[in-house]
Simulated assay, not measured.
Amino acid sequence: MAKVLIIGAGGVGGVVTHKCAQLTEVFEEIVLASRTEEKCRHIAAQLDRPIETAQVDADNVPELVALINRVKPDLVINVALPYQDLTIMDACLEAGVNYLDTANYEPLDTAKFEYSWQWAYQDKFKEAGLMALLGSGFDPGATNVFTAYIAKHYFDEIHTLDIIDVNGGDHGYPFATNFNPEINIREVTAECRHWENGEFVTTPAMSTKQSFTCPDGVGTYNIYRMYHEELESLVKNFPSLKRAQFWMSFGESYLKHLEVLGNVGMTGIEPVEFNGQQIVPIQFLKRLLPDPASLGPRTKGKTCIGCVVTGVKDGKPKTVYLYNICDHQACYAEVQSQAISYTTGVPAMIGAKMMLEGKWQQAGVWNMEQMDPDPFMEDMNKYGLPWAVIEEPGFDLV
């Protein structure tokens, strides 16, 4: 039915490739490309069907265009680094192909992630008759679709949104990150922003904490309010929201290590001179930490990610909690990856499937919640991320 070019062979790239390879009726041909082709070959060797691999520098637009023109895909799935979103979008425009990513653009030299740079491509993609689907991971991604699904089926108007991301997994290391260390640490150490009464309110990073008990025996965890990019598009596309917050769980060991590393300057993004060379501290730290793709075999436990929404239905107040629980070891058994990469990679495959099947196909640049949530939610149940709904769950987040 279709041919896809997947760019990026990290943990998420591996999951996307595995999941696409499982659906031969949709993804007839797959090409996996990365700066290091050996990583692509390693993933390809795990599959039950042959795929093509290639080498590409995702920072180099002419190189990307040459690869796209040679491969001639129906869709480019970008699971490279967020710093490379714009070069890949530029290449897709030049080569005339649709685009999908899992995380919004972030400048290499500024710890600031927002959609403005990619939303600026709206007219270019529309005029070219091409579609760019932004943030088709879990958060952002599935959480945006969760919100749209809840708003469509349970409410006349939604008023508050709390996205809660709990990782109850244990990899056994004193300190490691479950996805790209550089991106992870930049997110966690950034100032918190949440939406309240028509504006974003800024508070110090990790300054608001609550205890949250997950359903289905996953456990009770400390969750911390932080900024996450899906809030930016959700408050724009659901203007009735009076408050929107994002929460993530962190263990005490992780936070203590992060505090010490920050105090000694290892999380900095400004280059420093060392032995006559310019190095960026956080990039050097990334080289010292375990590769997230290597955590799969040793990670045990579950993730619990979902949305708590309040609002009104038939004039009465209402609360709904929609969530997914994912088991790290079950993910590894299926695609040789832990659940963090799995929960990002599966929605990327489903978003691609929506576009290729024409269920989500509209020229321009779009966020997930702007599409019909129903077919995506149906496929989440089919392809490894089953979800559940609790009405009136009996808790409130301040």
Rank of each mutant, 00 (worst) to 15 (best):
V4N: 13
V4G: 15
I6N: 08
G10I: 09
A21S: 15
E25H: 15
A33Y: 04
A33R: 03
S34T: 06
R35G: 12
E38M: 11
C40K: 04
D48S: 08
R49F: 07
Q55V: 09
Q55E: 06
V56S: 03
D57F: 00
A58T: 06
N60G: 12
E63Q: 13
V65H: 05
I68R: 05
I68D: 04
I77T: 11
N78G: 13
V79W: 07
Y83A: 04
Q84F: 02
D85W: 00
L86A: 10
C92W: 11
D101S: 11
E106V: 14
L108C: 11
D109E: 14
T110Q: 15
A111W: 13
F113L: 12
W117Y: 15
Y121T: 09
D123V: 05
K124I: 00
E127R: 14
A132F: 01
L133H: 06
L133M: 03
G135Q: 09
V145F: 04
H153V: 03
D156E: 09
H159F: 08
D162C: 12
N167F: 06
G169P: 07
H171E: 06
G172F: 01
Y173S: 06
P174V: 15
E182P: 01
R186A: 11
W195Y: 14
W195E: 10
F200M: 14
T202M: 13
A205I: 01
K209C: 01
Q210L: 15
S211V: 04
C214Q: 12
Y221S: 09
Y221P: 01
I223L: 04
Y224L: 02
Y224D: 06
E229L: 11
E229T: 03
L231K: 08
K242R: 09
R243T: 15
W247R: 09
W247Q: 12
F250G: 02
E252C: 04
S253M: 05
S253F: 02
G262L: 11
N263L: 08
M266S: 12
M266I: 04
T267S: 11
T267K: 00
P271D: 04
G276V: 02
Q277F: 10
F284C: 10
L289R: 11
L295P: 05
P297H: 11
T303P: 08
V308A: 05
V309E: 07
G311A: 05
V312L: 06
D314Y: 11
P317L: 02
L322R: 00
L322H: 00
Q329Y: 04
A330V: 09
S341F: 14
P347F: 13
M354K: 09
G358Y: 09
G358E: 08
W366Y: 05
E369K: 05
M371T: 00
D372L: 02
I390G: 15
